[in-house]
Nucleic acid binder design. Structure first.
Lengths: 220, 220
DNA sequence: CCGGCTATCAACACCGTGTCGAGAATCTCG
DNA sequence: CGAGATTCTCGACACGGTGTTGATAGCCGG
């Protein structure tokens, strides 16, 4: 299964045609300001006024481009998850060629993508608690990844590389949830965390143990 | 290692002597109101006025008992984690007697405790993003559990029941993080989740695979 | 050159938080 | 008992952030 986006689109929020208009420039400026401020301040500590001023407009004008502060973050999240999807695309289709290397590649790419946008990732994790749209978007993204993982585990089982055991879906949920939480703790430095240099290998180790049960998986 | 609380105390917030005073009654009323309202509304949607009215006092009077809305939740969280600590206490000291049963018992007790107070648990998870005190308290609690897990894994390795591999601390962090996230998703019904009836066994399965690597652990 | 779309902002209404200062109720001890 | 401290209470206020309204300015096509 290849990761494919379900046209979550959400393109330009207001009724302007996409392309080269003065308003398009402003919209980008707001998004850039948000990502910039997020590097030094928590999302809750950034006001709409900060975003507007950073983009060189007044607060009411902000509302011409986005319906709320949360919508800005949602757009940012959408971009990042799109990037992560692209980075992960196809990796799992070739798991059998060299299982440990492929699984590692998958985990590493997620780590790299979210590491490159950690300000956005951290802000989304923080806001997910209070904002239903962010929560739902993230849930949908995670669901896609869970399904990919599930399909790959089942494929490994079919070719006899992985033993049966837990339902593939339950296992896929547990492993992806672990990755989310561990990666977040590492990137945000929040709570007990694994060192950033080790985190990919630690996660990989648990994935392989849970999927293959100690038996070294044979390449196809 | 037995779980022991580090006297996080935080007892009565204002300068009253603990015991049977009219103010003590009010304080309990506020806490009870918070836990009750949390069952039907998100924490962010509950105002200090709601809490005050629920406890039969005015908003300014609320501030006599708690410095903020978040402080109420913090007190609630402190209670629940205390309960979880008590439930988990000692279980890991006897892992070797019957490893699968003991590890399962540990996971099940956490599940039961947080399941019994899911409104508080869910609210804390949501607020952790924006409130440093809740985040820090939770981080400290998790750190204790990680250390217990770590010690138990090392003990299993010393007696030859578990093979060497990942540093015990890294493994303990990964597994506890997985539990936190998966349990939260299940209790809150947020995102891809394992059915509540299965969640303990799913988590246990990954723990055993990661710790013992497919080799059935011998009892002492 | 006019009607409609894009874009802008000052001013306003609203809501929740937290503080202040003035009290009432209760307790303590000479 | 009653004077002084302490516990407890709330009306009224100041503040800061959100989202809306209505008026206005540029711009582009017909």
């Amino acid at each position: 299964m290849t990761i494919a986006r379900a046209a979550a689109g959400s393109g330009t929020p207001r009724g302007r045609r996409p392309g080269r208009s003065p308003g398009d420039h402003r919209e980008r400026a707001i998004l850039a300001t948000a990502e910039r401020l997020l590097r030094h301040r928590a999302f809750a500590d950034i006001s709409i006024d900060d975003l507007a001023r950073g983009a060189g407009i007044s607060r009411p004008t902000f509302y011409f481009y986005f319906p709320s502060k949360d919508a800005v973050l949602l757009t940012l999240l959408d971009r990042v998850t799109e990037e992560a999807d692209a980075a992960a695309a196809g990796v799992l289709d070739r798991v059998a060629e060299d299982p440990p290397a492929r699984w590692r590649e998958l985990i590493r790419r997620f780590h790299d993508t979210f590491g490159a946008h950690r300000a956005v990732a951290v802000a989304c994790a923080q806001v997910r608690g209070t904002n239903a749209e962010v929560r739902d978007l993230w849930a949908a993204v995670l669901e896609r990844w869970v399904r990919c993982t599930e399909a790959a585990i089942e494929a490994e089982r079919r070719r006899g590389a992985a033993p049966d055991g837990l339902p593939a879906r339950a296992l896929a949920i547990a492993l992806n949830s672990m990755n989310e939480r561990v990666l977040y703790a590492t990137l945000a430095g929040d709570g007990p965390a694994v060192a950033e240099a080790d985190v990919v290998d630690v996660l990989l180790d648990v994935w392989l143990a849970a999927i293959y049960r100690g038996a070294a998986p044979p390449p196809a």
